[in-house]
Nucleic acid binder design. Sequence first.
DNA 1: GTGGCTGCAAAGCTTTTGCATGTTC
DNA 2: GAACATGCAAAAGCTTTGCAGCCAC
Lengths: 150, 150
Amino acid sequence: MLANALIQERMRGFPGRCRAQGLKVTHQRSAIFRALAATDRHPSPEEVYAQVRAELPSISLATVYKVLDLFQRHGFLRRVSTDQQAARYDANLAPHHHLVCDRCGSIQDVPVPPNSDLPAMPAGVDFSVSHTDILFHGLCGACRRAGPRA
Amino acid sequence: MLANALIQERMRGFPGRCRAQGLKVTHQRSAIFRALAATDRHPSPEEVYAQVRAELPSISLATVYKVLDLFQRHGFLRRVSTDQQAARYDANLAPHHHLVCDRCGSIQDVPVPPNSDLPAMPAGVDFSVSHTDILFHGLCGACRRAGPRA
DNA sequence: GTGGCTGCAAAGCTTTTGCATGTTC
DNA sequence: GAACATGCAAAAGCTTTGCAGCCAC
């Protein structure tokens, strides 16, 4: 669980930012955004749904999918690239990388060391980069200690 | 289409490498591996299936899935991390990064500049890294030229 | 009041599974 | 011949869609 101060920092201005983009502020949207702001575990839509249902028991999974997609298109969230089946979302918009455990599927944040550069694109490639994702694949501490076959 | 020399280079020793790992060499497996060795477009299972069917019309999609997974677990292929729905596979095992077009979904290889280092993991993080994926997201040349809304 | 949002249910796409048959070694 | 691989069909995820009713503005 994250510090309350960070959660409130992430929630600050949420209604205003929605309205600035022409989005209506509904209970469902606030609850979904709060569920993501309150964790650094990069939940899947199903996990967001489970979390939000505690607060809004009648919300539907379809709404969760629609809102997550909406938030992503408006830059409130990012979708984490992973080769897992289910999508994973991240409300941490500060620059950081990800550690993806290939056994249990957990995703941890890695802060970017202050003086580090992103890898450079070679000159002359016909592509305009909007975001660089860095994923370290391997085994998280718990899975590594669980042994080679657990 | 890739140069024949590169394709043959990638196919070289394929039967021996299978047997060395205790895998039987079937027509289906050879055709699937060749389909991936012959392209740098990182095809999805469905695309591999379409390609291989030209040669083996009776192959099933389930076999394609099983063999792609098998090859990945034995290190013959890598699965590209992307947030697209369908998996994408890559037979290029040389170090390289990927350009992922967020509009059309195409994936291009980027050679790693010779003197570049991978981003470092901060010390003290409890995670053992086996592979680092670097994904540049953005728009490919064709999509960018197609305009902001195409 | 109106346009946009939600909930529901159905459908769509991707992937996995169980099992009988066929193939490699 | 034994062990393993394939093909089929069914099922299991995950995600999207269409639409009637509801809600924020």
